[in-house]
Simulated scan of single mutants.
Amino acid sequence: MELNDKAAVNGEGVLDVSNANLDTFTADSVSSEKKRNTQQLYLNNNRLCVLPSSVSSFSNLELLDISNNGLSVIGEHITRLVKLKTLVAKNNRLNEFSLPKDFGSLQLEVLNLSGNCFKEIPLQCTKLRRLQSLSLGGNRLKSIPVEIENLSRLEVLYLGGNLISAIPAEVANLPWLTYLALSDNCIQSVPPQLTRLHSLRSLSLHNNQLSYLPREILSLVRLQELSLRGNPLVVRFVKELMYDPPSLLELAGRTVKSGNVPYSRQDLPDHLFKYLDLASKCPNPKCAGVYFDSCVRHIKFVDFCGKYRLPLMHYLCSPECTTSPCTSNPQSDAESDDDNSVPADRLQRVLLG
């Protein structure tokens, strides 16, 4: 291959051979000096089916982009790139058998394998002790290995668009994790151990199968964004808002009972007297209200985040009770009896729709 002007090494040590319609690549026409000076090599958007062994001759390479090719395997020669920090290999045909045995010996800080055919996260990836960002979105992953906890420097974990059904508790052993994306999976629950992710700022869980959140989610003190849209719990919350308001009969009965308006059997028709005897106290211990037929479950927003807040279920006798905690939904196990227990400036966004 003759390198054209576009593929020449510039003053910043970048060799760009992207979008060149290549089905093979050789570095024979690159001088030894240029190879030594090249720190970034772009081979993306070509037709490569095999990563050329000549790539290993770029001894000072720090970034390699081989995205949008037809690669099904990455050979052992990549392990010779001892200074490689960033590998972008998204949108290829790679799977859990495509990486070399010693892949974990690389000093990678950023690894992007999104848009491939992985059914499992290769254990070689969990040996990349310097890794700060791991992206495996848009694959066929069914689980997260417990060995993920070995990536002690990880800050970004993107696993959206897979078939993951559970979050292992070992994810909570990533002390620097800041961004966790698990959207568009099959996750049914969030382990309470995630409360140990003290650095977490963004948690994306939209389009899963979550029906409740653990109480411990409120202990993520640095969390600024929580995405929940497209989960059964949000659908249920929205439906709970759409309830029939109390009838005029019930509103009148509430007024009589809550205001201790005196009455006797002689003052009222028999059916109204019996109706008033059916009054029940609101289950909220801080509410003196009553209800007859329209005790509804409602949403209590326990955390401020601008337009949206974190929704949790409560039983209410009327919408006026929304400022006081009521008997909680046992399934959610997430309510607090103290409205002041959650700082008002915590979450900035909770995406519900």
Rank of each mutant, 00 (worst) to 15 (best):
V88C: 05
L41E: 00
T255I: 10
I187M: 05
E240N: 08
Y263G: 04
E225Y: 15
S98E: 02
Y179R: 08
V342F: 15
L3H: 11
F292Y: 15
R140K: 14
P245D: 12
D270A: 14
V235S: 14
C117E: 13
Q266D: 13
L48W: 09
N340W: 12
Y291L: 00
G115A: 05
S264W: 05
R130C: 05
K101Q: 12
N92D: 04
L197C: 04
L205N: 02
R349C: 08
Y212H: 13
G138P: 01
L223I: 06
V221D: 12
R309S: 14
G161N: 01
S59L: 10
P175C: 08
S324R: 12
S332Q: 13
V73C: 05
N208G: 06
F273H: 15
R254C: 05
P262H: 12
L249G: 04
T322I: 09
A181T: 02
L123A: 08
P285Y: 04
S247L: 06
L210Q: 10
T26N: 13
Q348W: 11
Q132D: 05
R215L: 05
P122A: 08
S332F: 14
C317D: 03
V73N: 07
C326I: 00
G137T: 02
Q188M: 10
N231Q: 08
E120K: 15
N208P: 01
L218A: 10
I167T: 02
T178I: 10
N208R: 04
T323Y: 15
G75R: 03
V156C: 07
S57I: 01
K239R: 14
N60H: 13
S165P: 01
D339K: 12
P330I: 07
G259C: 13
D28F: 13
